[in-house]
Design a protein around this nucleic acid. Structure first.
Lengths: 337, 337
DNA sequence: TAAATTCCTGAAAACGTTTTCCCTTGAAGG
DNA sequence: CCTTCAAGGGAAAACGTTTTCAGGAATTTA
């Protein structure tokens, strides 16, 4: 691969001049500029980002650390973050910890060695241990999942409000016996959703035990199905289910369909996340939409501004509203909706 | 951030010695080794991957270029690739072109400047133009989507066989009027699936026009629903649908449910991909499974071996079998299956 | 015309590593 | 006792850029 020296030699100028042409700064005569660009094309010269980063002491790279690329929510989030940052001249190194704190720590270490200029992190687990090494070195944005009491920037969605709205919706429809189903990983976000739901129950003047809370230790895929099948066998069936994620809700729908329940009349279901598929389910799923695009863009923008200013502070927190999407799993809907 | 010089000064040795300790090569006495490691811990020294890559002329980084992280298939593929390569000491830069050839070209250029040691690419579109600049410089693995007549390594799934098996399955069930539904992006893989399906028709001794082929210019999300609703209104309805992707199939299920069709008796549906959700749909979806894990691992392994050997050749192609997953959308299944 | 700017260019230092080369020391072999 | 050799360690070059510094030429200003 051609280096700046070869280009300089080929054009009969110094490397400094080539550098000036490449970066469009400093003075260089039209004559030489032409000779240099010609040589660059001829040799197919591509400046080494490595060398440039080393000298400039900035890598134009940011780390994005998520608990699982397989989760549609994070896939969407990463996509928007990547698009936004690439447009601003940054590349991203994506790390998927697969909900393992050990892997998370390993990735953090790698990002430090890689000298990334900043990081956007949706942490796994409840401890900040794995990511603290980063905090003192570069700007960090916590996204989607909070870690309390940490001096750091945050972009969060209002899970409390989302949980509240979902539950309030069910209560307004007249449901008085509701099951709440959750699974692993049981993050702070999940806690918030549950708290919101409980608050809605309390605000409606109902007893706390009118909400049955079922949290599994297993991962979300099977849980909705298993719990619901179980619930539907009892003498006292709940009339509605609030699933803490859409994937769980899909399992709920499955179990309900299996015993021939008519939705939303015999059972109403609310999910959480609004993954792309939820409007295509049968019946389409009422769910709480995360403002994914706004979260991703806000995180990217906030990180960029912190990088420009040279350091993390002042810390900023953004709490974005969730939006309840009414669909056929709780209300009768228009044809084709 | 502490540099190797500061560590050396702190330990009272030369930088060469520190380097030897870090990389565990060369001779260094137990005494000094101790002093050095102590200094490293004290200063929280993390070697700069930038400087190291520059000097070693290898970045230990590979580029992964996919047409869309949002597509569950690619999210899963990237996850396994990332895990495999990270374990081998490599980091990956992920690029999601969102099916735009221009973005793809921009990412390729970035990867070159970044001096990645290799790349794994699922190209968008039918032209190899965007990625050719890479081919002459570093080892490249084409994955999932083929570009014919290119001197390059390939890891592909047998889309022809998958299409054949899906269609053969429907024919065995007695279907004689079948619709095939496809959407954008219409890659070579899609062509292969269609060819496979047609071959199955021919092998069964049936006329080519017993298969109605509908390919939309729009993207997959709405297509299954729209086409199916249309099909079901005609006097002569197909008795089965072969959807070229699971996401399309979900739309088909939706449309069928809307008019109250009983599956699989009144309509049978086969999808393609076996995304995680397909077994949780209602009814669960018969589909052709891509060997995602094997593809990802094979791509990573092949790339690593080409990198070690210093250059792309000899080119290798691996064609992996697809597997038909029988579920409730075509056959009556066991309870809970 | 002298002085001050502005324009243009090159030499060389710097970024943080790895690695080659060379020098010392101590021990083993003759 | 001299020679070899292995172990241990430092100085300095190299990787490919950017940027500072210095200086010359051309142009403007006084």
């Amino acid at each position: 691969m051609a280096t700046i020296k070869e280009v300089a030699a080929h054009a009969g100028v110094s490397v400094a001049t080539v550098s000036r042409v490449v970066n469009k700064n400093g003075y260089v005569s039209e004559d030489l500029r032409l000779r240099v660009t010609e040589a660059m094309h001829l040799l197919d010269y591509k400046p080494s980002a490595l060398a440039r980063s080393l000298r400039r002491q900035e890598s134009l790279t940011v780390g994005v650390l998520v608990p699982g690329l397989n989760q549609p929510f994070f896939a969407a989030l990463v996509t928007i973050i990547q698009t936004t940052l690439f447009a601003a001249g940054y590349r991203i190194i994506i790390c998927s910890s697969e909900e393992s704190s050990d892997d998370e720590a390993a990735y953090v270490d790698m990002l430090i060695r890689q000298r990334v200029d900043g990081a956007i992190i949706a942490p796994t687990g409840r401890s900040s241990e794995a990511i603290t090494p980063l905090l003192s070195k570069i700007p960090v944005i916590l996204i989607d999942r909070d870690l309390p009491n940490l001096p750091v920037n945050r972009i969060l969605a209002n899970n409390f409000q989302g949980g509240y709205d979902a539950m309030e919706h069910l209560l307004r429809l007249g449901h008085r016996d509701i099951a709440l189903i959750g699974a692993q990983p049981h993050s702070a976000s999940m806690d918030q959703r549950i708290h919101g739901a409980r608050r809605a129950i309390a605000d409606a003047g109902m007893a706390a035990n009118s909400l049955r809370t079922l949290i599994s230790e297993r991962s979300e895929f099977d849980v909705g199905y298993a719990f619901t099948r179980d619930l539907l066998r009892r003498k006292r069936r709940p009339t509605a289910v609030f699933a803490l994620t859409d994937v769980i809700a899909i399992g709920v729908l499955h179990a309900a369909a299996e015993v021939g329940l008519k939705l939303p009349d015999e059972l109403s279901v609310v999910g959480f996340d609004d993954i792309p598929l939820s409007s295509y389910l049968i019946p389409s799923l009422t769910t709480v939409a995360q403002p994914i695009n706004r979260m991703g863009e806000a995180a990217a923008d906030l990180l960029l501004s912190r990088i420009k200013e040279g350091h993390p502070e002042p810390f900023e927190s953004l709490l974005l509203d969730m939006k309840l999407m009414l669909r056929a799993s709780t209300v009768h809907h228009r044809r084709g909706a």
